[in-house]
Design a protein around this nucleic acid. Structure first.
Lengths: 224, 224
DNA sequence: CCTTGTGAATATGTTCACAGCA
DNA sequence: TGCTGTGAACATATTCACAAGG
């Protein structure tokens, strides 16, 4: 079998040939490009972007080169055009439905945040098991019992979930979400979830960041 | 000059010789070990830990080998002992003071979270510029005006700050914090801060995670 | 047996440096 | 000239595979 015989899609770099770490940087590029656009700037360069992000210009050019040629030699990148391309690559040129499990303080903060929509996401359901929280109005959505997760996930073909439930319930919630059809989970509980290998989980735990920082700091603790 | 002449500290692997990515994994190991300890387990192996975390046992052993020999051949690791060692390495065998800037929904969620202390951190000051928020009682602390940041930071020799302020103010808040003596910042605003190179900044932005996830998902967006 | 700790081998990621083009 | 896109060189990270010890 030679390459000539393969269908075009097989020749072109496929998803798995692009390093995940590269994909992880694209949203940061996009966020920064939108900021520049908001300042009225129309063109940028890999050098300028790199300086803003504290990374090398070569890395930015190399990262983008996995997907195409988006710049102009001597000029740089048209910001609006590059934003569009990145949004298309990341598939965020539309609004993705997201469900949120946990209506505590954190759940409230997430449900009330109005910066999701302009970046491609909308929380379309909030769930909790505490009877006191069910029915509570969070502005755009009302807290529903967890028993309704599957119905909502299926109704909206929702693939993304946020877990903002207490640590002790996080694994159980994850199981429920996965059974309902969720493919990707953003977990705020400080625990590593056990999931099938086709499910992607990412984690947000501020303490992990703090404990990373303290390694490099001079130890100056509180007196007890 | 030969190694015999150097003081002991100079011979031992210094901070900069240990990859940052290794340091970043230690808090995850610590978190998981504490979980096992909470379940009453006394001993674990690199194999078990790796299975729980979805990484290879070799990586865990290699990571730990940068700091010493903590295990027993044939047996594995004593959980309590390894926790202690990791806490010492990360310097979280004590309580670090942290200041929080921004008393919106997110600031409230962070200030109310009671999982910090057992992992080495305490929020000792919350600041905001909104007169309506100043004086508000968040349980352990009262919201103060941002003008008092420097005083509190210096009083507690605080080196760590959280920015939970609106994006438009985040850079300004960072400048204030750094001027006050803060060394490390955890930034929840969706923006890359410009800081002197001796200041460490880490970021938490859920949308970055979502946009990373969507690359791998089948596009199924909401109808508008 | 079982499991650690570790050199060597492999794999992955980043930077260099420059041809090529506006 | 100024900047991109990219192979080649380099640097970093992970895994392998095994000696050694309980």
């Amino acid at each position: 079998m030679n390459y000539q015989e393969l269908p075009a899609e097989e020749i072109v770099a496929d998803k798995t040939s692009i390093p995940d770490i590269v994909i992880g940087r694209l949203p940061v590029y996009l966020r920064t490009l939108k900021l520049l656009h908001g300042h009225g700037q129309e063109v940028t360069s890999s050098q300028e972007l790199g300086d803003l992000l504290g990374i090398s210009s070569a890395q930015i050019r190399k990262d983008l080169s996995h997907f195409g040629e988006f710049g102009k030699q001597g000029t740089g990148y048209d910001i609006v055009y590059l934003c569009r391309q990145l949004e298309e690559i990341l598939k965020v040129d539309c609004i993705w439905p997201v469900v949120l499990v946990g209506a505590g303080y954190l759940g409230h903060a997430l449900a009330s945040y109005n910066g999701f929509e302009q970046r491609g996401f909308r929380i379309i359901g909030v769930f909790d098991n505490d009877p006191k929280k069910i029915g509570e109005d969070l502005g755009h959505v009302v807290v529903q019992p967890s028993s309704e997760i599957a119905e909502v996930v299926q109704k909206y073909s929702c693939q993304i979930a946020i877990i903002a439930a207490p640590t002790d319930f996080a694994q159980e919630v994850a199981n429920t979400l996965i059974a309902a059809g969720i493919q990707s989970i953003l977990c705020y509980a400080p625990i590593t979830l056990t999931v099938p290998k086709n499910i992607r989980v990412e984690y947000i735990d501020p303490v992990i960041h703090f404990q990373h920082m303290t390694f490099y700091l001079e130890k100056k603790c509180l007196e007890e």
